[in-house]
Simulated assay, not measured.
Amino acid sequence: MTNTDQTPPTSGTVADARADNWVDRYAPAWLKPYARLARWDRPIGIYLLFWPCTWGLALAAIANPERGFDWIACILMAIGATLMRGAGCTFNDIVDRDIDMQVARTRSRPIPAGQVTARQALAFLVAQALLGAIILFQFNRFTVIAGVASLVLVAIYPFMKRVTWWPQAFLGLAFSYGALVGWSSQTGGFSPAILLVYFGTILWVIAYDTIYAVQDIEDDALIGVKSTARLFGSKTRPIVTGFYAGAYALWLAGATMAGAGLMFFALSLVAAGILAWQVWTLDADVPGNPGVRFYSNHYVGIALVLALLAEWVW
């Protein structure tokens, strides 16, 4: 049932966070609202931002075997993904604070719930962005410039749900950028191979975020927020299937151009199987079903990076 009650919840726990998450259990009271702003209690976004970075690093290792996989860059990108995902979510919550108050799943977030003011959230945003910049400046000049350019995508994304039915496409442009950053950190530029992987990742993000947005269709319709879930409607499953198929095809093409072979192709079928399971079992009428399918994309990321690393070792 749609919940349009605009009274902030009394509990500090965010509605779509797991009840036993580490923030609620262990974080000090003063940190909890900020940790929730950065989604540390819901780390799936960190994973989905980080895995494309590892794909770029692993593809660069396959293309240049003598250089190998840069584990230091991998660690830096994990930290950077945590900071920039937190900064992006904080910015999103500042911009969407009025909308979040009207949606059952989001009105328990720190700003609409009154746990943090917009001014405090802005200060937290700046702190995360500055720390993220320190991480970014550890890489070559091309990667730094590319990373700074990606901030335009991060900045415009929260506004897209107001003006287009395709906000998921803009999320895809931003969330897939790690593949370009990972590759360029090792090569000093882009290539057709990594661009194919980037475009494939955009399709992947559009598809999985459409599944995620299925949970909010009723609330979004009431308040006039646009999404691909609302746009696709009853055709969501076949359209998402098409996006996933396109993503996998582009990943295979990009990996082939970078030098991947049968080892990657065989092991990447695990990722393809998870994507197929998602669309085969997706049922928007079953509470929690879309959320579980969305979260399983974490394992898609793991499966692909392991397939790429196995190819590099082979």
Score class of each variant (00 low, 15 high):
residue 148 V to F: 08
residue 277 W to L: 12
residue 95 V to D: 01
residue 88 G to I: 06
residue 280 W to C: 00
residue 173 L to A: 12
residue 31 L to P: 01
residue 40 W to S: 03
residue 3 N to V: 13
residue 288 G to R: 11
residue 138 Q to K: 12
residue 17 A to I: 03
residue 207 A to I: 11
residue 253 A to P: 04
residue 127 A to M: 14
residue 234 S to W: 00
residue 206 I to G: 03
residue 214 V to A: 15
residue 100 D to M: 11
residue 167 P to N: 00
residue 286 V to N: 01
residue 20 D to Y: 10
residue 64 N to S: 14
residue 10 T to V: 13
residue 291 G to N: 12
residue 121 A to H: 11
residue 20 D to S: 14
residue 126 V to Y: 05
residue 243 F to R: 07
residue 29 A to K: 14
residue 231 L to N: 01
residue 297 N to T: 02
residue 95 V to F: 01
residue 168 Q to L: 06
residue 309 L to Q: 04
residue 298 H to K: 11
residue 251 W to A: 11
residue 268 S to K: 00
residue 39 R to A: 09
residue 90 T to I: 08
residue 304 L to F: 12
residue 86 G to Q: 06
residue 252 L to I: 12
residue 17 A to V: 01
residue 159 F to A: 07
residue 261 G to L: 05
residue 296 S to H: 07
residue 195 L to A: 05
residue 266 A to K: 00
residue 123 A to L: 14
residue 242 G to Y: 06
residue 282 L to N: 04
residue 157 Y to I: 03
residue 297 N to L: 02
residue 121 A to G: 09
residue 1 M to E: 13
residue 271 A to M: 08
residue 48 L to Q: 12
residue 159 F to R: 04
residue 198 Y to T: 07
residue 290 P to V: 04
residue 53 C to I: 02
residue 22 W to G: 01
residue 238 P to Q: 09
residue 132 G to D: 05
residue 143 T to N: 07
residue 50 F to M: 10
residue 8 P to T: 14
residue 114 G to A: 07
residue 268 S to T: 02
residue 242 G to I: 04
residue 309 L to K: 01
residue 130 L to R: 05
residue 185 S to H: 09
residue 282 L to T: 02
residue 225 V to S: 09
residue 55 W to V: 03
residue 74 C to I: 03
residue 7 T to D: 06
residue 97 R to H: 15
residue 180 L to Q: 05
residue 24 D to R: 08
residue 310 A to L: 10
residue 11 S to F: 00
residue 111 I to F: 08
residue 281 T to K: 13
residue 178 G to T: 10
residue 236 T to S: 10
residue 189 G to Q: 10
residue 140 N to R: 11
residue 33 P to A: 13
residue 150 S to K: 10
residue 289 N to D: 13
residue 217 I to S: 09
residue 115 Q to M: 14
residue 157 Y to E: 01
residue 219 D to Q: 12
residue 204 W to Q: 09
residue 210 T to H: 05
residue 253 A to M: 12
residue 64 N to C: 02
residue 206 I to N: 08
residue 192 P to Y: 03
residue 239 I to P: 02
residue 272 A to V: 14
residue 204 W to P: 05
residue 200 G to H: 09
residue 277 W to H: 14
residue 72 I to E: 07
residue 124 F to G: 08
residue 236 T to R: 01
residue 131 L to N: 06
residue 36 R to D: 15
residue 64 N to E: 14
residue 205 V to T: 15
residue 171 L to K: 00
residue 36 R to W: 03
residue 140 N to D: 13
residue 141 R to L: 14
residue 180 L to K: 04
residue 18 R to Q: 12
residue 280 W to P: 00
residue 35 A to W: 04
residue 111 I to T: 09
residue 259 G to H: 00
residue 19 A to F: 06
residue 289 N to R: 08
residue 272 A to M: 15
residue 309 L to D: 01
residue 103 V to T: 06
residue 14 V to L: 10
residue 46 I to G: 08
residue 74 C to F: 15
residue 6 Q to H: 09
residue 200 G to D: 04
residue 206 I to D: 06
residue 200 G to C: 09
residue 250 L to P: 04
residue 167 P to L: 02
residue 179 A to P: 01
residue 151 L to Q: 08
residue 163 V to K: 04
residue 118 A to S: 15
residue 69 F to S: 09
residue 111 I to P: 06
residue 93 D to E: 11
residue 1 M to W: 13
residue 275 L to V: 10
residue 191 S to F: 02
residue 87 A to Q: 07
residue 71 W to D: 00
residue 59 L to V: 03
residue 251 W to H: 11
residue 9 P to E: 14
residue 119 R to Y: 14
residue 50 F to W: 15
